[in-house]
Lab assay of single mutants.
Amino acid sequence: MDSLVVLVLCLSCLLLLSLWRQSSGRGKLPPGPTPLPVIGNILQIGIKDISKSLTNLSKVYGPVFTLYFGLKPIVVLHGYEAVKEALIDLGEEFSGRGIFPLAERANRGFGIVFSNGKKWKEIRRFSLMTLRNFGMGKRSIEDRVQEEARCLVEELRKTKASPCDPTFILGCAPCNVICSIIFHKRFDYKDQQFLNLMEKLNENIKILSSPWIQICNNFSPIIDYFPGTHNKLLKNVAFMKSYILEKVKEHQESMDMNNPQDFIDCFLMKMEKEKHNQPSEFTIESLENTAVDLFGAGTETTSTTLRYALLLLLKHPEVTAKVQEEIERVIGRNRSPCMQDRSHMPYTDAVVHEVQRYIDLLPTSLPHAVTCDIKFRNYLIPKGTTILISLTSVLHDNKEFPNPEMFDPHHFLDEGGNFKKSKYFMPFSAGKRICVGEALAGMELFLFLTSILQNFNLKSLVDPKNLDTTPVVNGFASVPPFYQLCFIPV
């Protein structure tokens, strides 16, 4: 009986604490739906499609509103004006990374994606500088992407125009580009180590996009005490870190300090320079996690976009025909596509942009946080508050993009057929937390897609009208449904 009384008292205290925290903070924060004790607004949000729920709530509470995930307040920004004001106009104040408990377990605050403060700034600055020195957006990395595009075309030829699921092959190409940047090595598509790495990356994007992960991140005790797919994700990350550590040891034994070959060499050189400046942010643990982040951000996002792009091109054969006509006119058949071609191919450029806009790969991006107490639109948001960005509300804005739910390359073309930029184009987020590999991803999408369409016609196994382009999961990332196609050599 005594234990029951204690339990009831504990629960009562928890409920009172929950109510007090919510009521004391709500006077400062933007308005929002009334949260339930302990669980907050979790029942009012469709976990399978958070973005749709945010759109519905914005119609009631406006472009800036507050939700509670458990006891934790989260300020939501919906629509271009609110997102721009926060991420661009007040970029420094909104540059923090929001709480992501599962990532905390995986990387302990290291790396480039989930770190904060001085650690994040130094690692991000170093990573950007190193990638630029190796030619991100310049010639040397373009050579690597072109080489991988040629290998991709050869792998597709091996399908002999038979029906195939493109998931694996389209994942190999961007993964190999990242391998060449980090390890100075590309792998054969049949290499077992490479296959294991690909498998872990593919599993992780599916797990991260599941409703279960949303629950884990908002009720963090689940991570330590409950079984579930989150444990598989943590094991996959541990596998990748151990693999990278092996490569780091190989580099330490063979590195030429006067001739760095890749990202690992550059990081080890930085560690050597910083060894007298303790404590340094440049450690082996930081290198492991930064490399894992580059793999995660640079492989599955690009391969998922490529997979979605081919599905949309199957669905819209008239678009595919126009792209192939432009390829034939500008590039021809006797040389590989290059980035200089893009400025002469406005329709193809528009298609690449429209694919990214339409699929809305990361509907709410990753959570941000404010780095200080900030007054925002007459609300006071306390330091450390998590900020949720609705990228969907920007990419699918119906004023900027008429009929935003329709796939239409003319969203990025003017009346004369010239490519038209849009400030609403934010597939990689915006501001200080914009994806480090934005330029690389854009290069890969253009070169891989043009190389495929230069060499193959795409054949659907069903009537294009019957192809479903609805994402199968739409949590962290929008993942396309399973499909097969035939690559018919031109």
Rank of each mutant, 00 (worst) to 15 (best):
S12R: 09
A321V: 12
L11A: 10
C216N: 09
I327T: 05
G96D: 14
L152R: 00
L388W: 15
R26A: 10
P166L: 01
S303L: 02
E354W: 00
R21N: 13
F134A: 12
T450L: 05
S336P: 12
I374C: 10
E272D: 10
K459A: 07
F168Y: 08
L445I: 13
G137K: 09
I205N: 04
S422A: 08
R139C: 11
S23G: 13
I387G: 02
L9T: 11
G32M: 00
V323A: 10
P33E: 02
D397V: 03
I169R: 01
K232L: 06
W212N: 05
F446N: 01
H78I: 09
I244Y: 04
I327C: 06
C372F: 07
I359G: 09
S23A: 12
Q278H: 11
T364P: 03
A430M: 11
P402C: 10
V113Y: 02
F401M: 05
E203K: 07
D408Y: 02
S51R: 13
R139I: 12
C338F: 06
Y358V: 08
Y68S: 06
D341G: 01
V153L: 03
N398C: 12
F456C: 01
G27K: 13
L366H: 02
E199M: 10
F376Q: 01
R433A: 01
H396R: 12
M406H: 15
R26C: 14
T167H: 11
V352A: 06
L208D: 14
Q22T: 14
I374Q: 06
E328L: 14
V76F: 06
T385A: 08
G437D: 00
E438I: 07
N277H: 12
I215D: 04
G431V: 01
N196C: 11
P174Q: 05
K48P: 10
G442K: 14
D414N: 06
L395N: 13
L54R: 03
V323F: 05
C13P: 15
L445R: 03
P163R: 04
V248H: 05
P337S: 09
R329S: 12
T371Q: 12
L9Y: 14
N204V: 09
P402L: 11
C175N: 02
S343E: 11
P221H: 11
K48H: 11
L9R: 10
A477I: 10
L11P: 08
S393G: 14
F263Y: 14
G137S: 13
K235P: 04
F295M: 15
L306E: 00
R105S: 12
F194P: 01
R21S: 13
D143I: 09
S115D: 04
E154C: 05
R97S: 06
C216T: 15
V462L: 07
K138S: 13
S429I: 05
P37M: 04
R186F: 03
S390L: 07
V351F: 12
F110H: 11
I359V: 14
E142I: 04
V462I: 13
Q340L: 12
I182F: 12
F126V: 10
M271H: 08
P409N: 02
F425H: 10
D143F: 08
M406C: 14
F69R: 06
F482Q: 15
G62M: 01
T305I: 05
T385D: 02
T385F: 04
K383S: 08
S429F: 05
P33C: 01
C175L: 12
T283Y: 05
E328F: 14
L395P: 00
V60Y: 09
V323M: 13
K52H: 10
L391A: 09
I182W: 05
L195R: 09
I45T: 10
R97C: 04
A103P: 15
T392R: 13
S162A: 15
E142G: 03
P30E: 00
W20A: 09
N258Q: 09
Q252V: 08
K160A: 11
Q214E: 10
K59F: 10
G46E: 08
P337Y: 01
K119V: 06
C216Y: 15
K459T: 07
R139M: 11
S242Y: 05
D349N: 15
K423G: 09
R329T: 10
P260K: 07
H410P: 02
G27V: 11
L7V: 13
S451I: 07
Q193G: 12
F134Q: 12
I215W: 14
S95G: 14
T301A: 06
N466V: 13
K28C: 12
F376Y: 14
L453C: 10
Q356N: 09
A103R: 10
G117N: 12
I50V: 13
E326G: 01
E300H: 15
V330I: 14
F263D: 00
V75M: 04
T392A: 13
R307P: 00
